[in-house]
Design a binder for these strands. Structure first.
Length: 412
DNA sequence: TCTGGGGTCCTTTTCCTT
DNA sequence: TCTGAAGGAAAAGGACCC
């Protein structure tokens, strides 16, 4: 036993990043196999408020719905963006985050499906269950992504992790019909990059010695955490690849990017990352926001804004109650017609999950923000969360006048 | 004709206290 | 009493991610 323990302690870290291949589109194609190979975009609205497929609910099996009954991009009017597009649609230049109106000009015949998060979450739970049955140390990184600590899992060290990765891929496919890509490396940073090397259905094994030949030629943008802004700033200094980033001294990076970011950039370029795989975490904030059908004015559309505002507070309160949290920091977010944004928040003495209280405090926040310009989005957020069992809740309706429509709303 | 929604984390600013 | 330093908490904004 002692020998086994000693061996276990010296095992090299093997961390996997698993990424489902074209997750939303793949789930939709399981439901509507007749759309295979066609240009399909997903986005534009939620299924629960928007039944676009004309024969759905008619009793016809989903896979028998005729192609003619699917809505086309050219028939859609309204706001919204593409969440994801199939490869056939991407061939037309259509892609994620593109406005639907623009996409409709590029590929009017594309089929438009509404986003169905509930369905994606069901598949998400299924594939994660498959993973934890095999490898219990799993970190949730969203609906279609996880990190897994292979280090002490049987097979996790064989062929650098390839044996276990193959097993997980097969188990997920057998259980869901979906494929995924997996990268295995000494840490999360490299595993995340590796999972993209051979998409779809890929397995990539990365060791420390692979840093220079495999990672350094890549664009800085491939580092998880370097977005468009940081990339542009790096480019302005003539740094385009991870290798070029690694060539800069830590001191130089700290000088130009600040203490924390500079040090992090240096570590990342050298493939260093000690972050553990975190299996459980508490939420930091819970929020709801909505973009209006048309831009609304605080005075002219006061009644409508008031209704939306109340609904948002009620939704957040329901989310808090369902998830078992209460919060002390209550805030609003808004976006003006010109797309500039503003946030305000206020921290109260006692945590609450009560809609009327949220509305009252959020209403105070709203009074602190300029409301001359039209608005396109309004959101309500609660932070400084505490699990509800641990707090004395703010007395809900005890001495509150209910979801007030009047004085607490400023201009509304 | 632009540009969703739900998050996390970090930095900077501001305010308050010592 | 005034001024400034230092530090913490809250607030605001922004970058980034899925």
């Amino acid at each position: 036993m002692a020998a086994v323990t000693a061996t276990n302690h010296s095992l090299p870290r093997r961390i996997a990043h698993l990424d489902m291949d074209a997750f939303y589109a793949s789930v939709e194609l399981l439901r509507y196999p007749q759309l295979q190979g066609l240009p399909v975009v997903i986005g534009g609205g939620r299924r629960d408020c928007d039944q676009r497929i004309t024969t759905e609910g008619s009793g016809l099996p989903l896979h028998e719905i005729a192609l003619a009954d699917f809505p086309r991009l050219q028939d859609y009017t309204g706001r919204g963006v593409i969440t994801t597009a199939t490869y056939a649609a991407r061939a037309f230049g259509v892609g994620s985050a593109m406005g639907l109106m623009k996409a409709a000009r590029l590929c009017p015949q594309a089929i438009l499906l509404p986003v169905d998060f509930d369905e994606y979450r069901r598949y998400s739970r299924r594939f994660k269950q498959v993973i934890t049955d095999i490898a219990p140390v799993m970190e949730d990184r969203g609906v279609d992504e996880v990190y897994i600590d292979f280090t002490r899992v049987p097979g996790g060290q064989r062929e650098g992790g390839r044996v276990l990765a193959r097993l997980i891929q097969k188990a997920i496919f057998d259980a869901t019909g979906l494929t995924c890509s997996i990268g295995v490396a000494p840490n999360k940073l490299l595993a995340k990059m590796a999972s993209e090397f051979h998409k779809p259905k890929g397995i990539s094994i990365v060791h420390e010695a692979d840093l220079q030949p495999l990672v350094w030629p890549l664009a800085c943008r491939k580092i998880n955490g370097i977005g468009p802004k940081a990339d542009a700033k790096l480019a302005a200094h003539g740094i385009h690849t991870i290798g070029e980033l690694a060539a800069r001294s830590r001191a130089w990076l700290v000088q130009h990017f600040g203490k924390a970011t500079g040090a992090w950039l240096h570590d990342a370029a050298w493939g260093r990352d000690e972050r553990p795989v975190v299996t459980e975490s508490e939420p930091v904030s819970i929020s709801r926001e909505t973009t209006f059908e048309r831009d609304l004015h605080a005075v002219h559309d006061r009644a409508e804004l008031g209704r939306i505002f109340t609904a948002l507070c009620e939704q957040v309160a329901q989310d808090l109650q369902r998830k078992g949290y209460a919060g002390r920091t209550i805030g609003i977010k808004l976006r003006y017609a010109d797309f500039r944004g503003a946030t305000r928040d206020q921290t109260i003495a006692q945590a609450t999950q009560d809609a009327a209280m949220l509305r009252r405090v959020a209403g105070q926040c709203l009074k602190r923000v300029p409301l001359q310009q039209r608005l396109r989005l309004l959101g309500v957020r609660v932070a400084s969360l505490v699990p509800v069992a641990e707090v004395a809740l703010h007395p809900a309706a005890a001495h509150s006048p209910g979801p007030a429509q009047g004085d607490t709303l400023g201009l509304f």
